[in-house]
Design a protein around this nucleic acid. Sequence first.
DNA 1: AATACTTAGCGTAACAAATACACTAAGTAT
DNA 2: ATACTTAGTGTATTTGTTACGCTAAGTATT
Lengths: 245, 245
Amino acid sequence: MESQLNPHISVDCVVFGFSPNGIKVLLVKRELDKLNESPTPSYDLKLPGSLVYNDELLDDAASRVLKELTGIENVFLERFEVLDSLDRMKNQKDKEWLESTTGLTIDRVISVAYFGLVNLADSELNGLSERSKWVTLESAIQLPFDHSKIIQRARELLLHSAGTEPIAFDLLPEKFTIFQLQQVLEVFNGSGIDSRNFRKKLKTLDFIVPLAEKQINVAHKPAQLYKFDRKRFMQFRKQKNASFI
Amino acid sequence: MESQLNPHISVDCVVFGFSPNGIKVLLVKRELDKLNESPTPSYDLKLPGSLVYNDELLDDAASRVLKELTGIENVFLERFEVLDSLDRMKNQKDKEWLESTTGLTIDRVISVAYFGLVNLADSELNGLSERSKWVTLESAIQLPFDHSKIIQRARELLLHSAGTEPIAFDLLPEKFTIFQLQQVLEVFNGSGIDSRNFRKKLKTLDFIVPLAEKQINVAHKPAQLYKFDRKRFMQFRKQKNASFI
DNA sequence: AATACTTAGCGTAACAAATACACTAAGTAT
DNA sequence: ATACTTAGTGTATTTGTTACGCTAAGTATT
């Protein structure tokens, strides 16, 4: 078994970028010049994804492909779906592009989709490659292959796991205020949360731990700072219908 | 694209058999004669699973393979895991067996695991093929490939998703009473349910559909019959904290 | 024919949780 | 001084969950 690309198995990464304004998704440019030999450079956008090496784990392939295509690393990627539809390659252009970039004959590719989340304000994201691009969810339509559908499914996953998985706290600093947590959750489920009821609910949760500290240098009443207790959260989520929103 | 086996993609089915006494899992015999040419027929047991055809959907492949190997059909199979470990074929015997039965050269196989549940009391199970066998979970250890691990994961799934997945309805007949549904759920979460509150709750769920029929020839007041609407259930589970128990 | 037994099925009161909404507090910026 | 922003508490209402009482409609037993 040599280290060669498996022509039947690929990974695709849906990486959402969080900002207070909304959620964006990370796409990469696909050069289309080689196909039609047009004089002007042309490209379209697709999810970062590629074929998997025969001696490579899927999780490793997802991280590698994301790093190679976008420059982003150290993102926790979660496997969430298998795409096996027979018409994934129905657009002849997609098949030709894949064959020309890999040098392989492509008949059928099954893709394993990964999900990741980063904070667009993080300085670590400065290493973003030039060929990659953050776009709004509204503009991520009519992508090649079934990538629009994959993004749609990832968005549903994000919505569903906002209250049951600890992903919100990956976007917050070590010490955060209730207002900050609320803003993150509001972006996730796309609607406003009543801050008074939200505070009431949080008081019943032992994994949101108040610190002996307050905000400083803010142009309003300084807020109590809290930290996230991951261990207690893991206990909490074992309950029957555990959701904190 | 012709109808030929894809040497890189397989499906494996974990089918649990439910009975009041306990849970069993369905395995198939694997003939080992051809390999070692021993005079006495020898076999071991494995999960029903096989390679996928290039023009075949994974869901279809799972149903086909289960039918071919065990004779069981019309079982709802749910995709629940992807097995991509590099040492799945570490046992040379497994690789040789797969190559001899498929006539293909095998380097790496990624397997998509499916989960199903049937009632051992169902008469439909009489069509069970001779090469398949129900075994207790305790005895389903040290199976070929990573099949023991897959069964272990499926068992965790069974324990944790009684109220969020439609598995309970795989054990019930097409037309069932509320009491029957309650009994199955009581086995899953190991404790009694108040039948009056349970009925009240079910009335709010649109995927439990009352039929224009009642039980006949029962030694008590005949009960209303219901059917399970899987489509509506799939909508229901998309809700925020969807659990029906 | 009366009675026991079994599952079916409705109702009601107490309690817990989610929601809607009013108000005051403490800081900075102008 | 006043406006602006986020912080934080309280209360009343609606909705959902739980505990439990009771009657209904069949067959089996005596």
